[in-house]
Amino acid sequence: MDIGLLALRLLIAAVLFAHATQKAFGWFSGPGLAKAETQFTMLGQEPAAVKVRLAISCELSAAVLLVLGLATPLGATIATATMLVAGYSLITLNKSFWAAAGGGEYPIVLAALAGVIAFTGPGAYAVDEVIGILPSTPFAGGGLAGLIVVVTASVAAAPVILSTRRSRAKQPTSSS
């Protein structure tokens, strides 16, 4: 089980790192900062320059925390909240949940996977376990930890989602 949790943490961290560096530097076929700001404007993420940098910071910090298994509930919360916002933004822009139609299916799955880590804890191969920061308690993994992370992530994502909703409502709709 511990190897599986390590693999899950590493996978999510790698994807978050790639997403952040796509936006920040254009790595991994990404848009780079200027084009990412344009994309965020289309997504209703205003002010785009601030929201892009916030997304980059959140994705990088969550990636580092998850890869190390350090302050794992915090890393899981940041990842979950960030991916909820990304998923919601894509769903409202493209009016579809499914990734095949440009929807937010993929970031929602990433949010759920990060939440799973909160329910299970980081496993034995984590700094939290090695140095005893989060000893095996209900807060280090289990129903209570998972619930706290999911609720906290939802509360953290809510203002950005509401802001996105307001921005999208102000954008002119294109008619065919």
Rank of each mutant, 00 (worst) to 15 (best):
R9M: 12
L10G: 10
A13G: 09
V15S: 01
V15L: 06
V15K: 00
V15F: 01
F17L: 14
F17C: 03
A18C: 08
A18P: 02
H19G: 07
H19E: 08
A20P: 02
A20L: 04
T21G: 00
T21A: 05
T21D: 01
T21S: 10
G26T: 05
G26H: 11
W27H: 10
F28S: 08
G30K: 08
G30T: 05
G32M: 11
G32F: 08
G32D: 06
L33P: 03
A34N: 03
K35S: 12
K35D: 14
K35T: 08
E37P: 02
Q39A: 14
Q39W: 05
F40M: 12
F40C: 07
T41Q: 14
T41G: 10
T41F: 06
M42Q: 14
Q45T: 03
Q45W: 13
E46Q: 14
A48V: 09
A49C: 02
A49Y: 04
A49W: 13
A49I: 03
V50A: 14
V52H: 05
R53P: 07
R53V: 09
L54A: 15
A55Y: 07
S57Y: 05
E59S: 11
E59F: 07
L60P: 05
V64N: 03
L65M: 15
L66E: 00
V67S: 15
L68C: 14
L68V: 07
L70Q: 04
L70T: 04
A71E: 03
T72Q: 09
L74K: 05
L74S: 08
A76L: 11
A76T: 15
A76H: 12
T80E: 09
A81W: 13
M83D: 00
